[in-house]
Amino acid sequence: MKAVVCKAWGLPDTLVVEDGPDVVPGPGQVAIDVKAAGVNFPDVLIIQGKYQFKPELPFTPGSELSGVVRAVGEGVTTPAVGDKVIAFTSSGAFAQQIVVAAQAVMPMPPGMDFDTGAAVTLTYGTSHHAVVDRAALQAGETMLVLGAAGGVGLAAIEIGKALGARVIAAASSEEKLAVCREHGADATINYATEDLREAIKAATGGKGPDVIYDPVGGEYAEAAFRSIGWRGRYLVVGFANGEIPKLPFNLALLKGASIVGVFWGEYAKREPAANARAMRQLMGWMAGGKIRPHISARYPLEQTAQALNDMAARKVTGKVVIVPE
């Protein structure tokens, strides 16, 4: 089987595709033929050694996937060989085959395609944890989403709308904002051409948003936080801009606001039962048509580096997937 391999910390073009033996599951494990693997911004950081954890070299990147069970290890009663499944793992998804722990696998809902299955866990899991669990967004409140056309941004828009909130999407181009509107955004801000603070003021009638969802960081963070409403919650989701902002703490005092960290991977590890409940709610929303992942591109395994370069250059809207076969 073929797999993408990271042999040294570096940019996407340093990755190689190599042949290897078919995988064999051990006790409590499941072997899966990968049909699609989701690409996420952390993948760009992990191969450079810049993420919260560093896999041991060499390794295959990629953390979320969908596929068909090819074999199960000793003690595994579910899933069974031939089942269509979704899985989340620390690494290894950018390959034709993978072995994961059985508890990291969930059945793919009937009617779901493999591309969609590979686009659910990290982006929607992160945004559900952020918006529902950490921010406790309520119906009738207003949420501003920065970097709204990315995978987690679009997921946040859809989740906000599912909860009955008003959602303002901010992104860097009119093309990206059009996608945000297609996924439910009530108002949009182009922060490449508009003054962010003035636009937020206009979009909220001077009140400011109750929740700000920020997966970008960088230059827009302070302007957004200065615009937050009373008792607002500022969600620190990531730093796709590459710059970790330094926010003056007096702003939190003046607005009675909270700065709330969001680390879905650690949450899923520490609170698996809560994460499982969140996934069930997401699947229910998906079945009801309230959320629908936006797959903007598909890449063969040999073009994984290009997919990661496009992600790093912020050329991606919604999700892109690697199709190993």
Rank of each mutant, 00 (worst) to 15 (best):
A135C: 03
A155I: 04
A156G: 03
L144D: 11
A148D: 11
G160V: 00
L163D: 08
M143E: 08
A148R: 07
L163E: 09
Q138K: 15
V167E: 04
A156Q: 00
T142Y: 05
L137M: 03
Q138E: 15
A162N: 09
A165I: 01
G150M: 12
G150R: 12
A155Y: 02
K161H: 11
G140F: 06
A156E: 00
I168V: 13
T142G: 02
L144W: 14
I157R: 04
E158M: 13
A165L: 05
G151N: 08
A148N: 13
E141F: 00
A162H: 08
I168A: 06
I159P: 01
G150K: 05
L144M: 10
I157Q: 07
K161N: 06
G151L: 06
A165G: 03
G160S: 06
G140S: 05
L154Q: 09
G147P: 08
G164K: 11
A169Y: 14
A136Y: 01
A162S: 15
E158V: 11
R166E: 15
I168L: 08
L146P: 09
L163M: 09
G164A: 06
G153E: 15
A156Y: 04
A148C: 08
A149W: 12
A148G: 08
A135W: 04
A156K: 02
G140L: 09
G150F: 03
A139F: 03
A136F: 02
R134V: 04
G150L: 13
E141N: 00
A165K: 02
L163I: 03
D133R: 11
G160P: 00
I168R: 04
M143G: 06
G153W: 05
I157H: 10
K161D: 01
G153V: 09
T142V: 14
A165W: 05
L137N: 02
T142D: 07
L154A: 05
Q138R: 14
L163N: 09
L163T: 04
L146G: 06
G147F: 10
V145F: 08
E141M: 01
A135R: 01
G153K: 05
A155S: 15
A156M: 03
M143P: 07
G153A: 12
G150N: 10
L137W: 03
D133C: 12
M143R: 06
K161G: 05
Q138N: 15
